[in-house]
Amino acid sequence: MKTCLAFFGMWLVGSGCHPAWSQSVSVVRLAQLESLLNKTDDTLRVVNFWATWCAPCVKELPQFEAVRQKYANRKLSVLLVNLDDPSDLTTKVKPFVKKRNLRSRVVLLDEPDQNAWIEKIAPEWSGALPMTLVVNRSKHIRKFIGKAFKEGELETIINAYKPE
């Protein structure tokens, strides 16, 4: 059981060392997402909140894919948190992830009370998409980006935190 849990943890992190773990979208609740954001290891996490219906989100997804590849040998992981309606998981989200060939870890957050969970994830966030957090709890890193990235902006932010 212990091994199983540890394995699940690794799988949830979906870090750069598992590039082959693609095309699957798992459904998570807030508690799982929070524990991921609050991990105290040395991996810098780029956590992007997006939806298939959000055009600026879709437009910037390749930037996250590029960063994941570029920093594959560093302690950096990319997590794409999808906010489509859970009922669209198999009809929209999974086909989208497949079609776009997304290799970053994708989870769908299933939490109905947005007013409750938005504040817990980012108190400064109004709920506008896209939104990205760059976090590492143990290094006191927490950068909130409440809009789409300009070209190269994400890398500049990542480099400022010098991922190992």
């Binding site: 600026p56 906010l83 007013n115 938005i118 966030w125 709920g127 506008a128 998409l129 896209p130 809009k147």
Partner: peptide, 11 residues
């Protein structure tokens, strides 16, 4: 006040 997921204003 209450929050919800929405589209960001296109600045």
């Amino acid at each position: 006040t209450a929050r919800a997921i929405g589209c960001g204003i296109k600045w």
